[in-house]
């Protein structure tokens, strides 16, 4: 990742740009600068977790364990095409209009 200045100990400006691109969020120059500084502060604080030994601890996500939950496979009333399209910012006839792919 190249050399990092002291203020960029955890994440560099280039990494911020890269991750923001992965998240599909375009950042202004000002945001890049601000986020790099803030992320370094926040990640320094998050790194506190490294103090803990979690080798033997399982990652459990739920407080009450649930096994598979099933419901009857019966047809319910779906949204009509009109309802589904109602909130689309761009539509043409009965379709959503997406950005150009090719």
């Amino acid at each position: 990742m190249g050399e990092k200045s002291k203020a960029e100990k955890h994440i560099s400006r280039r990494e911020v740009e890269h991750v923001a691109w992965l998240a599909r969020i375009e950042l202004s120059e000002e945001e890049k600068k601000l986020y790099t500084q803030q992320f370094n502060q926040i990640l320094a604080y998050f790194s506190k977790l490294a103090e803990l030994d979690t080798e033997e601890v399982p990652p459990e996500l739920h407080v009450v364990s649930l096994v598979n939950v099933y419901r009857d496979d019966k047809v319910e009333k779906p949204l009509s095409r009109g309802e589904a399209l109602k909130n689309a910012p761009k539509k043409r006839e009965e379709y959503f209009e997406a950005p150009k792919i090719l």
């Binding site: 977790l49 803990l52 979690t54 399982p58």
Partner: peptide
Amino acid sequence: KAVKVATM
């Protein structure tokens, strides 16, 4: 790591 800490 965070999920494991949540378990703890």
